[in-house]
Design a protein around this nucleic acid. Structure first.
Length: 484
RNA sequence: CGGGCUGUAGCGCAGUUUGGCUAGCGCGCCUGCUUGGGGUGCAGGAGGCCGCAGGUUCAAGUCCUGUCAGCCCGACCA
């Protein structure tokens, strides 16, 4: 096999592997605008499946979709001080239109708290208008200094939920409910295990009271924030004057939440499940679950096709997402091609199979090949789909847990751990650490090790006694890691 | 936004140091035959504003200036 047909191995250069893998899987291409990518059909279809899975969960928890403008007046950003400070550096502006300079600059939205806050103040009068539970699917813009396809681009697609509530407990409950929705989706649909927890103040969303996240471990051991849910308290209610008349005839500010996940999830999928053969998709999200490849020379093709067609029809009507590959390429070439694209199951049907009334099933996650009788191929495929989904989660979980380090207590321990893994070529992974709660200690960890705080899990695997940096009593136990 | 590297065919690269004939190679692509259960083989063929703009020169892929984009490393982030 020619070497240049292969991907750069993950262990040689993970970043190069990622960039090659997503392009050769046909997920994206670079666009002619700085930091922007095109979602090609295979990449966009993944996003559509992510959307579908999340959208039904949002609906099931009482939310409805709406759409707000992409252009946001500059004055809106002045109304929440932390918010403007957080986002100002990365806003693109529209300054003229119709050949004339605009009286007020318009930002391309980086997120919609301000626009939605403005609208909510118009819509909410009474406690009877609450809770207001909306979600928006949209694009947003953040002019990042350093871009990476799917993980950080100038424009990206996402979903942002925005809710308003009569009191704090209800808003907090919503914040946690949506964090759980994200975790459920990541683990059960994407087969990506996550730690859920609270962000430290330094990592908090600009304008939030509390930010919570789900964090996933990529195959290079780095952390990726895969979703966030914010309790915004009354910050935006006060900035945008969102008030309601309560049962007790008192005028009160609402409590708001916001929560989002983005096309970054596609990057997570690739970096969690991919291997040196390419990307690997969990069956529940894979646009194609089974690809059928006919084997054998043209002389025998007709005979093969007599069985091939009916198997395809049967799988399709059984609800399996199945595709055929009738291209004029050799089987080996097709095997590699579909493995690169991450299709969970390959079904081979050749002359020998036809004689034995069977086919060959090969799975992407393990590479195992088995034969299946054509009599029960549907049930075999369905079982495999379930098995692969579960196996991919288990593998990812074992990997994640295997690279989470619970026994590191001091900065010396941490430095020793880093030195040891650097020397041996092992992944440095994540570290569970105690923290006194002081930003100075958090900053020192980052300064000395490049580890940043990921989140503070509500129920950590181990509760730490001492702060890793200052050795004082730990008020928190948090995950620290190198992160994307 | 700072430091470094890179832009030559769809992709990966050579050529640039030392300016000079018609700009090459591998893969891919097209045609035909061949092969077909892990990237088949052979033959023929198409494809270039040498990132873009300006400059130096008799002559620029090659030298100079600017600019844009990508990657890597830092400061900022879903």
């Amino acid at each position: 096999m020619a070497e240049d047909l292969k991907l750069t191995p993950q262990s040689n250069d993970f970043s190069a592997w990622y960039l090659e893998a997503i392009q050769r899987a046909g997920l994206m291409d670079y666009a002619p605008v700085r930091g922007c990518i095109v979602f090609k059909p295979d990449g966009y279809e993944l996003w559509e499946r992510i959307q579908a899975g999340l959208d039904s969960r949002f609906k099931a928890t009482g939310h409805r979709n709406a759409y707000f403008p992409m252009l946001i007046p500059e004055s809106f950003f002045q109304k929440e001080k932390e918010h403007i400070e957080g986002f100002n550096p990365e806003l693109p502006w529209v300054t003229e239109a119709g050949g004339e300079k605009l009286e007020e600059r318009l930002a391309l939205r980086p997120t919609s708290e301000t626009m939605i806050g403005y609208m909510y103040s118009k819509w909410i009068q009474s406690y009877r208008d609450l809770p207001l539970l909306l979600n928006q699917w949209s694009n947003v813009f953040r002019w990042e200094k350093r871009t990476m396809p799917f993980l950080r681009t100038s424009e990206f697609l996402w979903q942002e939920g925005h809710t308003a509530h009569a009191d704090e407990p209800e808003a907090r409950e919503e914040t946690m409910r949506m964090l759980d929705v994200y975790a459920d989706f990541a683990e059960n649909e994407m087969a990506v295990p996550v730690w859920r927890g609270q962000k430290t103040p330094s990592e908090r969303f600009a304008g939030a009271v509390d930010t919570y996240s789900i964090e996933a471990m990529m195959k290079d051991g780095k952390a990726l924030q895969a979703g966030t849910s914010h309790f915004l308290g009354q910050n935006f209610a006060k900035g945008f004057d969102i008030k309601f008349l309560d049962r007790d005839n008192q005028l009160k500010y609402v409590h708001t939440t916001s929560w989002g996940v983005s096309t970054r999830l596609i990057g997570a999928l690739v970096m969690v499940h991919g291997d040196d053969k390419g990307i690997a998709l969990p069956p529940k999200l894979a646009p194609i679950q089974v690809v059928m490849i006919p084997i054998g020379p043209p002389k025998l093709r007709e005979k093969v096709m007599e069985k091939f067609g009916p198997v395809y029809d049967a799988l399709k009507s059984a609800g399996v997402r199945v595709a055929t590959d009738l291209r004029d390429e050799t089987p080996g070439w097709k095997f590699n091609d579909w493995e690169m694209r991450g299709v969970p199951i390959r079904l081979e049907l050749g002359p020998r199979d036809v004689e034995n009334n069977q086919c060959v099933l090969a799975r992407r996650d393990t590479g195992d090949k088995t034969t299946a009788s054509l009599e029960n191929v549907i049930s075999r495929v369905k079982m495999l789909i379930d098995e692969i989904q579960i196996n991919m989660y288990k593998k990812a979980l074992a990997f994640r847990n295997g690279n989470c380090h619970l026994g590191i207590e001091t900065m010396d321990d941490l430095q020793a751990h880093i030195a040891k893994t650097d020397a041996s070529g092992e992944l440095v992974g994540w570290v569970l650490a105690g923290w006194c709660g002081h930003p100075i200690c958090e900053a020192r960890i980052k300064e000395e090790t490049k580890f940043t705080s990921r989140n503070i899990p509500a129920e950590p695997p181990v509760r730490k006694e001492k702060c890793i940096a200052c050795d004082k009593e730990a008020t928190h136990t948090f995950w620290i890691a190198r992160a994307y």
